[in-house]
Each structure stands twice: as structure tokens, then as C-alpha cells.
Design a protein around this nucleic acid. Structure first.
Lengths: 158, 158
DNA sequence: ACACGAACGTTAGTGAGTCTAACGAACCAA
DNA sequence: TTGGTTCGTTAGACTCACTAACGTTCGTGT
């Protein structure tokens, strides 16, 4: 093994005090870990987080053009292409030209896609639960609320 | 302008409900924003977050080898090389061979480095304050505590 | 004394994520 | 009908986290 074995974490008294006070660092470390856990949980299924995001958007808002999916998911139009290719290859969505506007494609989730979404969602729910394991129900809500407020604040140019 | 202008944020009723429940997504968005704000604040000074991290470690623990700096800052040995090059170029650190162990370099912070650290720290403190603007003092502590617990949990193999 | 494994700094490169630029095609408004 | 805009798409840049391999040096065991 390697001295670098356990990564990305606060090393207690080996960590400079100044760093512990930086929210952006704590956020970054925690976020990186959470993403890693999620990605590792999805990997065995050959799924990515982007798949979940896109399928969820399609399921909740119905068939949509790639542009509107991009708006809703915050996945760039350019990156969405590859994601949709993968989803189409798995039979989870159908990509068809829009007869009303020949520039557009209409993306539709399939029944298989809905199953896939449920499967991925179950995996991610379990991941979420594992991440927040040390927190009680009320604390989880608090965390969501606090992060949500910070996020909203930053979103509005804060 | 571009429809993609305001990125990475929760779009309210345009955001699929499922996504809002994912902690890792909320963490990711918030973390990305916080990092962006910090990086933008540091850019005018030609500083990076890694500079802060390394200078803080040197100031708090004294002269050290690159390996131990890497351990303390969680910056990979390989990436540390470039960071130290930049810091040396600015005259903020000195990199000298260790006479007691010819494999090692001894990295020492200079007086200019200490000034630089203070300057960067002031910028980042302001950033931190701005990020957490919507939160009261007690809420900020709560956020730190909750994130800290989640982080520690993930650190111990969660 | 010496061989071997481990640690050192360094270079290079991978892979994912975020984001920009530019394209031809199609649409829309003046 | 011309000019600006939106569409999907390709290509690429740039950052971050991370791995692999290297020659050198060191420490340990024998």
C-alpha cells in the first residue's frame, strides 16, 4: 500500500488550523467523498449520475428536447449528447426528430428507462442514507436546509 | 447571452424533485460554487487555494519535506511539485536540499511568504463570510459540525 | 559488507467534470 | 429575403483528483 491510502480527509492535529476554518475546503472534501461513494455504488450497474439526472427529468417533465433537458439538469448541451447516446443504447430513452421543428430531437423515456430510473434511485437512496448515517432525521433536514440556503444565496449572485 | 448563463443551480420548479433529495448533488453544487467564488477572489492576486494550503502548513508546522507537506495538505506529491515551484518563484518559500537526507528537500516559508499567507487568508476569510452570509453565527457552527461529522464518517470508511 | 525494500522528489499521463467555441441546419421576425 | 437565434453536434481546453514509473537515496536485516 501507500502512505496516500486514506485520502482527502482531515488529519486531526496534522491538519493546519487555518484549513479547518475554510468552509469551501470542508465542502469540497465532503462533496468529493460523497460523489465517490455514489459513483462507486452505481458503477456495478454501469450507470452514471448523469443517467439518473436525465431519466429523472424525463420522467417528471415528460418528453423534451435536448435543450430543455440541458436547462433542467444543468448538463451542458455538448455533454448531453454522449449521455443520451448511452441511454439510447441501453434502450432507456428514444431519440426522435421533432416533426414540428426539424432542429430538435424529442427525447422520450421508455418503460425500460422507468425501470432503470427506479433501480438507480434505489441505489442512490441507499447511498444517501449511508452518507448521512451519523445524522439523525432532524439533523439531516437541518443539513439540507442550511446547504440549500447557502446554495440559493450563491445562486442569486451572493 | 446564453441560456446557460447561470449555471449549476437549483432551478426551482424546473428542477426534478428527485434531484433535490440527493445530498451529493446539493453538496456538489454548493461546493462547486464556493470553490468558484474563492478562486475568483484569489485570481486578482495571482494566488491559488493550494498556495494558501501549503503556506498555512509551513507556517503552522515549520520547515518540512515535500512528503510531509503532502501528508498534511492532502495535495499529492506529484501535484505539489508545481505548487512549490510557483511559491519559490514568488519568493514565498525556499526549497533546499536536506543535508541529513539527500532524498529530501527542506521547504521553508519566508517572511514574504508569511505576508502572502496573511494576505490570502484575509481574502479567504472574506469569501467564507460571503458564502455563509445568509446564516447566523449559530447556524454556521451547525453547518460546520454537521459537515464535519459526515466527513469524518466517510473518512473512516463510511 | 551488502542486498533489498521502502521513501524521496519528479515526470508523465489518466479520467472525469466543467465549460467554451464553432459548425451547419432550421427557425423566426423584420 | 435577409439577419439574428436556436438546435444538436463535434472538438477541445482546463482543472482536479489520482496512478504509474523513474532514478536516487536511505534504513534494515543478514
Amino acid at each position: 500500500m501507500d502512505t496516500q491510502a486514506e485520502l482527502r480527509f482531515d488529519r486531526g492535529d496534522q491538519t493546519p488550523e487555518r484549513l479547518k476554518r475554510q468552509l469551501s475546503r470542508l465542502l469540497g472534501m465532503t462533496s468529493a467523498q460523497a460523489s465517490r461513494v455514489a459513483a462507486e455504488a452505481l458503477a456495478p450497474f454501469g450507470a452514471h449520475k448523469a443517467h439518473f439526472v436525465v431519466l429523472a427529468a424525463l420522467e417528471e417533465f415528460g418528453p423534451a428536447s435536448q435543450a430543455s433537458i440541458s436547462d433542467r439538469t444543468r448538463i451542458y448541451r455538448s455533454d448531453l449528447v454522449a449521455v443520451l447516446n448511452e441511454l439510447a443504447e441501453g434502450g432507456w430513452i428514444v431519440r426522435a426528430p421533432d416533426p414540428d421543428d426539424k432542429r430538435r430531437n424529442v427525447i422520450t423515456i421508455t418503460d425500460a428507462g422507468r425501470e432503470r430510473l427506479a433501480q438507480i434511485e434505489a441505489v442512490l437512496d441507499a447511498v444517501n442514507d449511508r452518507i448521512m448515517a451519523p445524522l439523525g432525521a432532524d439533523e439531516r433536514e437541518q443539513l439540507f436546509s442550511l446547504l440549500g440556503r447557502v446554495n440559493a444565496h450563491l445562486a442569486s449572485g451572493g
